[in-house]
Design a protein around this nucleic acid. Structure first.
Lengths: 201, 201
DNA sequence: CAGATAAGATACGGTTGCGTTCACAAGTGG
DNA sequence: CCACTTGTGAACGCAACCGTATCTTATCTG
């Protein structure tokens, strides 16, 4: 049933790695295994083999696979960044979607696709993945709208909260339907053809 | 590793089922197993146990799990329906999104969430799930726009193709982020607050 | 009723992964 | 140098599942 564990393709290390160096190799192996066999197919043995280490080194640090994956994701997923004021709403929205697309386009982003399947299983990484990868950043969107309002760029009337969901929803759907990276002009088109017409003065 | 196979909760059948009756029970068991343990966790033994039958009955019909799942999905996922002319664009768009939400809200729809993890694995059900469950129905959207154009309801200038993706993208994101059923007023809001402002005269 | 078919139950040999344990030894710091 | 920590490789008993095979027998049809 379980496919053969995939090797990283890297040669085994010369000499022993200790502490954080070993942990980095393990995290890298987790990502590689998530990509190759998904969360369900990921095994401690497979991660250990891909990291060229022993299971005991894994179990010394993590009680099981879910905790290992949580720690890996927490370490490797980018934290949300503040968005600099770029002087106009369009550029800020494009930047916001670029940040999201960059996460989705990353190896880690692609690796977490398999975690979508686990959403109902009360595993500790579910919330983390939703927040860091898939959910819209409503607070940043709100800041962009406030700045745009101050600059007189957007309509004075209230804007539907659904507009904040729109861009990320389109990116996620693209992500799920097509495994090639999300092109930049796609997200620019989302801003220009969908979001701006809904909010611009 | 693999969790214990879950029973359907139904009592074993009285007497033997043959032919299509047995197949129905097997399909039902597949859905139940997809919900309970996902695609990766689904086993022929688990399905056989949940359907109160023997593995040999499964292997007599299907060479393996992927074929079994394809057949189940093909049988249980609703085929696309034509959309009747409801006299105005708004009602037609709402109906279109209602059909999609109905699929996503169904047990089968929820059961296929685990298949999202498999999208990169060239399994035969991938296309089927994308088309039947997740993808926008562009041809129907186009028909709605044409009718609306004829009625003078929508703008004469070309409408961005991204607008067709918008509704389904919002539904899918809702589906992924929240396991409760998609409420009807959510999809009505998508039409009223996002799609119509983008297309209406 | 007899015959044919296929369902249900079980067994089998093989594979894989779990979590634990152990022996040896590389690496580090005093 | 020595003591300690931790990494490496391998072994272990167990559980689960695969795909196949076999036997019994329920069900259906003519």
């Amino acid at each position: 049933m379980t496919p053969q564990a995939h090797r990283t393709g890297n040669a085994p290390p010369t000499g022993r790695r200790r502490g954080t160096a070993l942990e980095q190799a393990i995290f890298e192996a987790v990502v590689q295994q998530l990509e190759a066999v998904g969360y369900a197919g990921l095994t401690m043995e497979g991660v250990a083999a891909a990291a060229h280490t022993g299971k005991a080194a894994l179990y010394r640090r993590w009680p099981g696979k879910a905790e290992l994956v949580v720690d890996t994701l927490d370490r490797l997923l980018p934290s949300p960044e503040d968005l600099p004021d770029r002087g106009n709403v369009r550029d800020e929205l494009i930047e916001l979607l670029r940040q999201k697309a960059a996460v989705l386009n990353s190896r880690v982003g692609r690796a977490v696709q398999s975690l979508l399947a686990e959403t109902e299983r009360d595993l500790p990484f579910v919330r983390l993945v939703q927040e860091r990868v898939f959910e819209p950043r409503l607070n940043v969107f709100r800041v962009i709208l406030e700045r745009g309002g101050r600059r007189g760029e957007i309509r004075p009337e209230p804007i539907s909260p659904l507009v904040a969901d729109l861009g990320p929803a389109m990116l996620v759907q693209r992500f799920l339907g097509d495994s090639s990276p999300i092109p930049d002009d796609f997200l620019v088109a989302i801003v220009d053809q969908l979001i701006l017409p809904l909010i611009k003065r």
